[in-house]
């Protein structure tokens, strides 16, 4: 009775956590496109219209944080975080239970580490929220710090949740290599 309820809870949480990760990922993906457009806008405005866009540097920095931290949970979700799992694949054949146990330990440690990051960043966010600190040059272009800290905090929290869900869900089949995600047209 209890294991069934637990299993169901995990499934619901997984769907929820993964859904949020996919949503964040969509936003992060749009930011990549935005990045291409911002930089090109600056190049053209400066070269052709003698009117450089002074916020380009700050917006690019901002976009980088968004791209990395909005996509990171999804990277964790689809198992594309860099790792070398040759050893796990090898023992997975002879000692599948041991391999699964090691995977769970690894995901637990990862969840703890991401939690530490979230805990470390949270006070930064509250400080910046209160002080309304900005970066950039006043009178030229400035951008607030707090959204950056907030995104990092939420991202680390979500990553921790997804790692934790991996511990509770059955281990996936080991993969040797992650191919490009889409089919090239060639």
């Amino acid at each position: 009775m209890v294991p069934a309820a637990l299993k169901k809870t995990v499934t619901v949480l997984s769907t929820l956590g993964n859904g949020v990760a996919i949503g964040a990922n969509v936003v992060g993906t749009l930011v990549v496109l935005g990045l291409v457009l911002i930089v090109n806008y600056d190049v053209v405005a400066r070269g052709v219209f003698n009117a450089p866009f002074h916020g380009a540097v700050e917006l690019v920095q901002f976009s980088m944080v968004l791209v990395v931290f909005l996509q990171l949970p999804d990277v964790v979700r689809v198992n594309r975080l860099t790792r070398s799992d040759g050893f796990l694949a090898v023992i997975g054949h002879s000692r599948p239970k041991l391999a699964a146990a090691i995977r769970h330990v690894i995901d637990t440690v990862s969840a703890i580490f991401m939690t530490l990051i979230a805990v470390a960043i949270w006070p930064e966010f509250t400080d910046m929220w209160e002080s309304k600190d900005y970066f950039g040059v006043p009178g030229v272009f400035t951008a607030p710090w707090w959204p950056i800290k907030l995104v990092i905090f939420l991202s680390a929290t979500l990553c921790a949740v997804i790692f934790a869900l991996k511990v509770l869900s059955p281990a996936p089949r080991p993969e040797r290599v992650r191919l490009p995600e889409h089919e090239d047209t060639e």
């Binding site: 400066r46 003698n50 009117a51 450089p52 002074h54 380009a56 540097v57 040059v137 009178g139 030229v140």
Partner: peptide, 22 residues
């Protein structure tokens, strides 16, 4: 067009048509 950084870009604000480039 004049290359500058930080606060000195604002020194150019009084010069007709001068554009500061970061």
């Amino acid at each position: 067009k004049v290359a500058g950084a930080g606060m000195n870009l604002r020194y150019l604000e009084g010069i007709e048509g001068a554009a500061g480039v970061r």
